Amino acid sequence: MTESGDGPELGARLEARERHLEELHEELALLRLEADEQRAARGAAEERARALERRASILDKRVRYYQREERSREVSTGRGERRVRRQERVLERREAEKARLKERLSAKDEEIARLRAEQRKLSARRDDALERAVRRVRELERELDLRSGD
């Protein structure tokens, strides 16, 4: 092939590489945006969990207070056993709900960790692909410079 035939073909290949690099940059930006959104969602979930834990603690204290009040009243009146058992069942249900919420939070934390790991792997692969593409473009540019210099 002649030198003049190589130039347009090489130029077209370089343009294709440039387009590919631009696409990779756009994809990387989208992935970074998605990672930011996942971090924000995780932060909101963690804040919600902390709020629920605070609320559960307040409710637990309130229940214990009312149980003490109820017991003292019922002991003095002699009809308290049934009410005490009912209050204990309410407390057990609340404890079960609290445990269920903690399990859900734990599952969400595991899912977030899994998504982060996937994101890191994908980002690393994309970064590697981008670096290879940049190296290839530089090689092609050097070849073009060598050919144009000849």
Rank of each mutant, 00 (worst) to 15 (best):
2 T>E: 06
2 T>Q: 02
2 T>Y: 03
3 E>L: 13
4 S>D: 06
7 G>Q: 09
9 E>V: 07
10 L>T: 15
12 A>Q: 14
17 R>N: 07
20 H>P: 10
21 L>P: 03
21 L>W: 02
22 E>H: 14
22 E>K: 11
24 L>W: 03
25 H>R: 11
27 E>Q: 09
30 L>A: 07
30 L>T: 10
31 L>A: 03
32 R>F: 12
32 R>D: 04
34 E>D: 15
35 A>C: 07
39 R>T: 08
39 R>H: 11
39 R>I: 08
40 A>S: 12
40 A>T: 11
42 R>L: 05
43 G>A: 13
47 E>H: 10
47 E>L: 11
48 R>K: 14
48 R>S: 14
51 A>H: 11
51 A>M: 08
52 L>S: 04
55 R>A: 14
59 L>T: 11
61 K>W: 01
62 R>A: 10
63 V>N: 09
66 Y>H: 13
67 Q>I: 10
68 R>G: 13
68 R>S: 07
68 R>Q: 12
74 E>V: 05
75 V>K: 09
78 G>H: 07
82 R>D: 09
83 R>L: 11
83 R>Y: 05
83 R>K: 05
86 R>W: 09
87 Q>T: 06
90 V>F: 04
91 L>M: 07
92 E>A: 12
97 E>V: 01
97 E>T: 11
98 K>C: 10
98 K>G: 05
101 L>H: 12
102 K>S: 05
107 A>E: 12
108 K>C: 00
109 D>W: 14
113 A>I: 01
116 R>F: 01
116 R>C: 04
117 A>G: 03
118 E>F: 00
118 E>P: 00
123 S>Q: 03
123 S>T: 05
125 R>M: 09
128 D>M: 02
130 L>C: 02
130 L>F: 02
130 L>W: 05
131 E>K: 12
132 R>H: 13
132 R>F: 04
135 R>V: 04
137 V>Y: 00
137 V>S: 05
137 V>P: 01
138 R>L: 14
138 R>W: 10
141 E>W: 04
142 R>F: 02
144 L>T: 08
146 L>C: 03
148 S>H: 00
150 D>M: 01
